[in-house]
Amino acid sequence: MATYMMNNLLVSCLMFFVMIGSLNAKPADTKAICGKAKNPSFCTNYMKSNPKTSGADIKTLATITLGSAQTSASTLLTKIQSLATRETNPALKKGYTSCVEQYKNTISSLDEAGNSLTSGDGPGLNIKVSAAMEGPTTCQDGLSKVKADPSIVKDNGDFQNICGIVLVISNMM
């Protein structure tokens, strides 16, 4: 009987602290985040276009935004792989093939960033997302020398902007 009462007390205390912790989770200041972003108008449009960001706390917002970056990178990888497969121009094929490798590295860095986010490591998240941004930059540099699909340039830019938002958020964690 005493063990039962002790377990009930422990469970009650645990629930109390969980509830207190969830009450302290205040919504992130998206205006402040977008004000510090590399592309504030992109950030503002991104926040407005994703209903999940409204009222999200900083860690949830980081999770949502990192997820968007991962989706963007995966979509771009698939698109570039398709272009590389169909391309007959050797210089352009080489550029796309290089981008495929860069995006594979980018996705790996984003996966590591997710691990940092899960553990609450803001500086680690920042480092891994910064590393993830290097691949698309290298890809863009290589494609600037050849006449590549212009949608890749736009999508690369969008990816960089999403990652830029994650960097701002990571600095606020």
Rank of each mutant, 00 (worst) to 15 (best):
residue 137 T to A: 09
residue 51 P to Q: 07
residue 171 N to D: 15
residue 75 T to F: 04
residue 155 D to H: 12
residue 40 P to S: 07
residue 92 L to A: 12
residue 35 G to Q: 15
residue 98 S to F: 08
residue 149 D to V: 05
residue 18 V to R: 12
residue 12 S to G: 10
residue 165 I to Q: 04
residue 151 S to T: 15
residue 169 I to W: 03
residue 44 T to I: 07
residue 138 T to Y: 03
residue 169 I to F: 00
residue 61 L to E: 02
residue 47 M to N: 01
residue 71 T to F: 04
residue 119 S to K: 10
residue 115 N to Q: 13
residue 136 P to N: 09
residue 150 P to Q: 06
residue 164 G to N: 12
residue 155 D to I: 12
residue 120 G to I: 01
residue 111 D to G: 14
residue 5 M to G: 06
residue 156 N to D: 12
residue 172 M to F: 10
residue 27 P to G: 13
residue 100 V to I: 12
residue 60 T to N: 14
residue 118 T to F: 12
residue 44 T to P: 14
residue 79 K to I: 08
residue 114 G to I: 10
residue 140 Q to H: 14
residue 148 A to S: 15
residue 156 N to F: 14
residue 81 Q to G: 03
residue 123 P to W: 03
residue 155 D to S: 15
residue 50 N to K: 15
residue 58 I to P: 01
residue 43 C to V: 03
residue 92 L to S: 01
residue 110 L to Q: 03
residue 17 F to A: 14
residue 154 K to H: 09
residue 18 V to Q: 13
residue 171 N to E: 14
residue 110 L to M: 06
residue 50 N to P: 01
residue 94 K to T: 04
residue 97 T to Q: 11
residue 2 A to G: 03
residue 8 N to Y: 01
residue 37 A to N: 06
residue 168 V to A: 05
residue 55 G to W: 11
residue 153 V to R: 06
residue 120 G to C: 06
residue 140 Q to S: 15
residue 118 T to C: 08
residue 156 N to E: 11
residue 25 A to I: 13
residue 3 T to C: 09
residue 92 L to V: 10
residue 41 S to Y: 00
residue 69 A to N: 05
residue 143 L to P: 01
residue 97 T to D: 12
residue 71 T to W: 00
residue 109 S to K: 11
residue 99 C to I: 03
residue 38 K to M: 05
residue 166 V to I: 01
residue 114 G to M: 03
residue 170 S to E: 08
residue 139 C to H: 02
residue 143 L to S: 01
residue 22 S to R: 07
residue 152 I to S: 09
residue 150 P to M: 09
residue 30 T to E: 03
residue 100 V to F: 09
residue 90 P to I: 06
residue 122 G to C: 07
residue 169 I to L: 15
residue 33 I to T: 12
